[in-house]
Design a protein around this nucleic acid. Structure first.
Length: 438
RNA sequence: CGGAGCGUAGCGCAGUCUGGUAGCGCAUCAGUCUGGGGGACUGGGGGUCGUGGGUUCGAAUCCCGCCGCUCCGACCA
C-alpha cells in the first residue's frame, strides 16, 4: 500500500478523550475512529491488525478441534426467555423490536443460540464431543465504556461452546480450550496468565480468566513467574489429542500461584519465592467457563446416551476479546514514539521510507523493494520531510523500517531499522529483504 | 447507577466571569526555498460557537430544557 493514497489518518496531537496509551495510539496511528461512546469504526491499519489476531485465534481453535460457524448478531428474545436470562441480563442487553413488534436483541453472547442449534440437530452421544465457535460482533450496553476498544460496547469476540456427554468429557474440552488459549496468547506476543475466576451471570463452577500484565489494567493481579517460562507451543510437548497431556498441562497451569485481588490469598502468596513473585495491573483478554447442564436443561437439549436414555449434555463456553486484544497488545508493547507491533500481528511487516521522493535513485530502489515485498509492505512515498516519515513510521509501529536515502541509493545500500530495539544497520537491499523474510 | 466536567475549524485550545457578531497553534491548499527525526517564508480556504427555547437593540458569552462526550467510583469479554 502506498501511504500517499492510503486511508491512514495519523494525528500529531492526541484527541482529548483518549486517556490511556493504547487508545491514544490507536487514534493517533489511524487504526480506529470513534463513532459514539464505546463504538468504533476500524480503518485499514486497525482492520489489518484485527484480522491478523482473528487469524491466529482461528488457527488455534481449529487446531484444538473446534469448528467455526457464524451465528447472527440479532437474536430473538424467545431463546433468552427459555434460559431465564432475558430478565437476568438487565440493561446491559440492547433490546430492540422489529416491525412486527417481536422482541429481539443484539447478542451479548451466544449460549442460548448455540444450544438451540445443537438441540435441533444432535441426537446421539456418538456425535459428541462438539466444540463450535464463531468470531462475531457483540454488543453489551456498558454503563461506562472507556479505554477505547478495551472496554467498548460493541466488540469483536471469539466465543466457543463445547458439548460433552459427561463431566469428564467437559473437563477435557475445558482443558483443550485452555491450551488453545495459552498458545494463542503466546503467538500474539503476550504473557497471559490463567487465573481462577468467578463465573458471574454465565453460571457454573469452574472458570479461569486470562490476564496480561499492563500498567493500565483494571485489576490488581499476583502470579508466580514460573508461568512466564512455559512453552505452550510445539516445544512444550502438550497435545490436544492425548488426555494425559491435557491433564499434565492443566496441572502445570493450576500448580503455580496466580490470582486477581478478589481471590488473592496472602498465605499462599507468602509461599512463593520472593524472586518469582510478580504483581501488577492486569487486563482480562479471555475467560473460560464450565457450567454443565445449565442451558441444556433449561432449554431442553438432550441426546441419547449409550443406554438409550436421554441425557443433558455438559457445556462450557470460551471467550476471547479479539478487538480488546488490539488494545491490550498495544498496552503491552509501545514506547514514547508509538506502537511496537509483534511480527505476528503487525499490519505490515515493513515500511519503506523514501526519504527523497523525486530522486531517481531513491524512487527506483524503493520501487524495487516495494515490488519484492508486495502486500506485506507499506510504502511511504509521500513528499513529506524525512522527520515526519520517521515519526509516522515509529507511531504506526511496523516491525521493520527500510530507510532509503539518496546517499545509500547511490551506494546501493539501505538502512534497516528494527522498531522494537531501535537497532539500525546499513545493508544491501537484498540483505534487507532476506532479513525481513517473505 | 452515584459524583464531577466538557462541547468554539480536521486535531489541540483561547475567548464565556465583565454581552457588541470569532481567534491562536498544528493540519490543509497554492507557491518559493529546503531536504536523514514532525523545516522556513508568502498567500489562501475552512466555523449555523452541540441543539431547542428564553432574556436583550444585540448572545459563543446570561437563563432554562434537551442531546452528545469524558473523567472518578461501584459493575463487566
Amino acid at each position: 500500500m502506498r501511504l500517499s493514497h492510503a486511508f491512514i489518518p495519523t494525528l500529531k496531537e492526541t484527541p482529548a478523550e483518549a486517556q490511556i496509551a493504547s487508545h491514544r495510539l490507536m487514534l493517533r496511528a489511524g487504526l480506529v475512529r470513534q463513532t459514539s461512546a464505546g463504538i468504533y469504526a476500524w480503518l485499514p491499519l486497525g482492520l489489518r491488525v484485527l484480522r491478523n489476531i482473528e487469524r491466529i485465534v482461528r488457527e488455534e481453535q481449529d487446531a484444538a478441534g473446534a469448528q467455526e460457524i457464524l451465528m447472527p448478531t440479532i437474536q430473538p428474545a424467545e431463546l433468552w426467555k427459555e434460559s431465564g436470562r432475558y430478565e437476568d441480563y438487565g440493561k446491559e442487553m440492547l433490546r430492540i423490536r422489529d416491525r412486527h413488534d417481536r422482541d429481539m436483541l443484539y447478542g451479548p453472547t451466544n449460549e442460548e443460540m448455540v444450544t438451540d442449534l445443537f438441540r435441533q440437530s444432535v441426537r446421539s452421544y456418538k456425535e459428541l464431543p462438539q466444540i463450535l465457535y464463531h468470531i462475531q460482533w457483540k454488543f453489551r450496553d456498558e454503563v461506562r465504556p472507556r479505554f477505547g476498544v478495551m472496554r467498548g460496547r460493541e466488540f469483536l469476540m471469539k466465543d466457543a461452546y463445547s458439548f460433552d456427554i459427561d463431566h469428564a468429557g467437559a473437563v477435557a474440552s475445558y482443558r483443550k480450550m485452555m491450551l488453545a488459549y495459552m498458545r494463542t496468547f503466546q503467538r500474539l506476543g503476550l504473557k497471559a496468565i490463567p487465573m481462577e475466576a468467578d463465573t458471574g451471570p454465565i453460571g457454573g463452577d469452574l472458570s479461569h480468566e486470562f490476564i496480561i500484565l499492563a500498567p493500565t489494567g483494571e485489576s490488581q493481579v499476583y502470579y508466580d513467574a514460573a508461568f512466564e517460562e512455559i512453552d505452550y507451543g510445539a516445544g512444550g510437548g502438550f497435545s490436544h489429542e492425548k488426555p494425559e497431556d491435557l491433564a499434565r498441562f492443566f496441572e502445570v497451569m493450576t500448580g503455580h500461584y496466580a490470582a486477581t485481588d478478589e481471590k488473592h490469598d496472602t498465605a499462599r502468596w507468602d509461599q512463593v519465592a520472593a524472586n518469582r513473585k510478580r504483581e501488577g495491573r492486569g487486563i482480562e483478554v479471555g475467560h473460560i467457563f464450565y457450567f454443565g447442564t445449565k442451558y441444556t436443561k433449561s432449554m431442553g437439549a438432550t441426546v441419547a446416551g449409550p443406554d438409550g436414555k436421554q441425557v443433558h449434555p455438559e457445556m462450557g463456553s470460551y471467550g476471547v476479546g479479539v478487538s480488546r486484544l488490539v488494545g491490550a497488545v498495544i498496552e503491552a508493547s509501545h514506547d514514547d514514539n508509538g506502537i511496537i507491533w509483534p511480527d505476528s500481528i503487525a499490519p505490515f511487516k515493513a515500511v519503506i521510507l523514501n526519504l527523497k521522493v523525486g530522486d531517481a535513485g531513491c524512487d527506483a530502489l524503493c520501487a524495487r523493494l516495494y515490488a519484492a515485498l508486495g502486500g506485506n509492505a507499506l510504502y511511504d512515498d509521500r513528499t513529506d520531510r524525512a522527520g515526519a516519515k520517521f515519526a509516522d513510521a515509529d507511531l504506526m509501529g511496523h516491525p521493520w523500517q527500510i530507510i532509503v536515502g539518496p546517499r545509500g541509493a547511490a551506494a546501493g545500500t539501505v538502512e534497516l531499522k528494527r522498531r522494537a530495539t531501535g537497532e539500525r544497520v546499513e545493508v544491501t537491499p537484498e540483505a534487507a529483504l532476506a532479513r525481513i523474510g517473505g
